[in-house]
Amino acid sequence: MQINRSKKIGKTIDEIAEGDSLSLTESIEDSQLLIYLGLTNDANPLYIQHEYAQETEYQRPIVPSVMLMGIITSAISKHLPGPGSHVVNFSVNFIEAVYHYETLTFEFEVIKVDKMKDVVTISVVAVNAEESRVLDAVVMVQPPSKKESDEIG
Rank of each mutant, 00 (worst) to 15 (best):
122 I>P: 03
125 V>T: 13
18 E>Q: 13
150 D>K: 14
8 K>C: 05
110 V>G: 00
28 I>D: 04
111 I>E: 08
94 F>I: 01
33 L>A: 05
84 G>Y: 01
130 E>S: 14
1 M>F: 12
10 G>M: 06
109 E>N: 10
151 E>Y: 12
109 E>I: 03
26 E>S: 03
1 M>P: 11
9 I>N: 05
117 K>F: 08
109 E>V: 03
130 E>C: 02
76 I>M: 02
33 L>W: 05
37 L>P: 05
48 I>R: 15
112 K>M: 09
128 N>G: 00
41 N>Q: 14
82 G>C: 02
105 T>V: 07
101 Y>M: 12
134 V>C: 12
133 R>K: 15
16 I>L: 15
134 V>E: 07
39 L>W: 01
94 F>W: 13
15 E>P: 09
89 N>F: 00
109 E>F: 01
26 E>R: 14
13 I>E: 11
85 S>A: 13
147 K>N: 09
153 G>K: 09
42 D>R: 07
57 E>N: 14
121 T>W: 11
10 G>D: 03
144 P>S: 06
92 V>R: 01
85 S>T: 10
37 L>C: 13
74 S>N: 11
99 Y>I: 05
6 S>L: 08
135 L>R: 06
18 E>N: 06
9 I>V: 15
146 K>N: 12
60 R>Y: 14
110 V>Y: 05
131 E>S: 14
152 I>G: 01
22 L>G: 05
67 M>Y: 10
67 M>E: 06
15 E>T: 12
11 K>C: 05
106 F>C: 08
61 P>Y: 01
25 T>H: 00
62 I>W: 06
109 E>M: 11
134 V>D: 10
110 V>E: 04
52 Y>E: 05
144 P>Q: 04
96 E>L: 14
31 S>M: 02
142 Q>E: 11
4 N>P: 05
35 I>N: 10
100 H>T: 12
106 F>S: 03
127 V>A: 02
131 E>V: 04
111 I>S: 08
26 E>T: 03
148 E>R: 15
3 I>K: 14
48 I>Q: 14
53 A>H: 11
121 T>G: 09
89 N>I: 00
145 S>G: 03
144 P>D: 00
10 G>C: 09
19 G>T: 07
109 E>H: 00
147 K>Y: 02
32 Q>F: 11
120 V>Q: 11
74 S>L: 03
54 Q>K: 15
90 F>I: 00
12 T>S: 14
149 S>M: 09
114 D>E: 08
46 L>G: 10
120 V>R: 10
151 E>W: 09
